[in-house]
Design a protein around this nucleic acid. Structure first.
Lengths: 219, 219, 219, 219
DNA sequence: TATGAATGAGCATTCATTCAT
DNA sequence: CATGAATGAATGCTCATTCAT
């Protein structure tokens, strides 16, 4: 990835470290204040590096944002659990998946906030970052969908596929919505409670769908 | 509120008209590009009024944003249906409420987008607008909660109150989440479908809760 | 031209005056140091106006240069004498024309220097100013050519036209060359002496051409 | 001068080659865009060497310019023909001299352009390069003067000296002027035609001066 | 009720230059 | 001999804001 095979000289290692500090400062500031609200001089102050150095590492503010998004996405996707790590029983699996989602929101809040802020603020301005954000969202949705399909299969049979897609989208809506509410006023929003309700809601829906299917089969 | 009882002179009417144009331009621009990304000169260009005039009507950019939020909120709340306008039967009522919510998202997308963008982008910077936004969100939630209570009452009895609050919050999460998804990625997001699934989900939850209550009573 | 028909308010008059000061400062600085060598902050310092004001009056450094060239050209062309102001006798006329040229170099040295510096320095960068400069040079040459035709007519008859063009170009070469030499090292260059020699040279050429023509006629 | 007597090691040869590439890139860029308009990074890009290498070879941008001028001058002076290479008959000699001058303009246009651009642009800023340029111009003028004296001697006797200086200066004026005109406006400027007219002009002047001298002697 | 002109702080970016390797 | 990384001053330009008219 970013690290090279050969041993880095002290100077080069310093360069890598500088780059990291710039990316981190930018990610934090832009998540809080948006792209336009984050000045290069603010990034310079927060990262401790002179503005010239920022331009040595990244060719423009736009590209810097692009790099922040790309690398953040990579790290975030790696942090997600794959289907192989799920418990075998369906109930436990649902729990695990939603726990993972909630955990992700709690562990990478800054980065996920950044994705939303940037996507909203720069929709018509910066196609590159937006494309990257869309790709990421799609990937996340596909992972959840895959899990849903596995979970719903035993209960719903061949109808599992259709519902899995719907459920995955729905899960993301609740996740995004709760996440935003949490960031707008943390005091009156309980992320875990939201996820608990969502689990109950999905279970109820699945049960209802299964019942519909059975009654259809009975006739 | 903004309109005065007595007849306005031509001069005053012109002033009102200018004010309106500035507010509209600001709302549109800030919803698209955020607060920091919207310059006074851009507002001047879009509204057709010189920047000096903007400062005649509003004393600072910050206060201009405040006015945009306040007036937008007022107009939005007025557009929501009250409990008196609901059909008597519960199923029809749920339908009506969710239809109203979906309709609101579709008719005031720019303004609702603005609320979210500003709330996220300026959380730590501008307490005044943020407070106004929080108040608005709270009000909206309370209205939905009230409706939910009316709807759930016949089925759940005295447990209706607890669930109404949870359900209202959940409804807003889905609404916000779907709305954002729709703005990030209009092609793969279907607002109406999201609301349809939410209705089924809420109904399933309510039914399940009712069943729980009954089984508790049976014992 | 630049002045308006109606009376200017004090404020507007100040604006005109500011514009003038910016143009003058720019003309002087760019003539000495070239376009790239002249910073907006240097113009600000020299003109006494803040850099923001420069951008209120001119939309970019490029356009500011354009305005300096355009206005300078206008003033310079107005300072040139027309054919009607020449003495009737040929010898006196030649003298008058060259005197005018030399006078022009001495009275507008800064502006003419600017034209040359900009033309050399920015050949491939700024087509607008270069076009303006070329147009000016062409106009000047045409004026001189016209005068030459009038002067050479009595001596050379219908061959006057051909020679007039050549002589005009030649005159400008000497003028430019002497002017540049004067600006590179003023101590060893005598503008007036150069013009004196040019006059003798042109007279000698004209006489020679007349002799050729006569000898051709005699045969 | 630049080439060393002893065999260079591969390493040294590489250094010499790098130095050459930097000098060439600088000369070309500065001739086109002037000193201030040429950045070290542009030189680095054009020469293919990193900016650090430029500072290894030359201690500053100023000194780099100095080196470009010095070496260019040296090469240019070497390319000029000496008096020993002239044909014996006066007419042929004049022709040869002017041909050499015109050829020089055509073969070293970039370098001669550089001299003029730098001399004009940096008159008050950089005494070192300017002095070098003045010295070069003086040398060129003296060579031409020397040739003129040889040529005019047979015709004008002891008055040859006075005129030779005047004629040499005049020749340079026309050369510079035509050269500049050619660079500002290549389409409407014919260098060779200018030199042809100059030759006729000088011949006419010389003949006239001879006639004056004779008539003075007759009395 | 408006607005044209101005202002200086701040913006993103490039500059000439340095230096450890 | 050469260079990748860094640095902070300076660049052209935009910003929010002011104010005389």
């Amino acid at each position: 990835m970013t690290t090279d095979a050969r041993k880095l000289t002290r100077r080069e290692a310093l360069g890598v470290e500088s780059r990291r500090r710039i990316l981190d400062a930018t990610s934090a500031l832009m998540a809080e204040r948006g792209f336009a609200g984050t000045s290069i001089s603010a990034i310079s102050k927060r990262s401790g590096l002179p503005s010239g150095s920022i331009y040595w590492h990244f060719e423009s503010k736009e590209r810097l944002l692009g790099a922040v998004v790309e690398e953040g996405v990579e790290r975030w996707l790696e942090s997600l659990p794959g289907p192989e790590s799920l418990p075998a029983d369906p109930t436990g699996a649902v729990e695990a998946v939603l726990d993972a989602a909630a955990g992700s929101l709690e562990e990478h809040p800054q980065f996920l906030r950044l994705l939303i802020v940037i996507a909203l603020e720069r929709r018509e301005i910066d196609p590159a970052s937006l494309a990257s954000i869309r790709r990421t969202r799609l990937l996340a949705r596909q992972r959840i969908e895959e899990l849903m399909r596995v979970l719903l299969g035993p209960v719903l049979g061949d109808r599992a596929g259709d519902l899995a897609a719907e459920f995955a989208a729905f899960t993301l809506y609740v996740a995004d919505g709760a996440f935003i509410a949490h960031h707008i006023d943390p005091d009156t929003t309980d992320l875990r409670a939201a996820f608990h309700l969502m689990r109950r809601s999905l279970t109820a829906l699945a049960r209802e769908s299964a019942a519909e299917k059975d009654s259809a089969n009975d006739r």
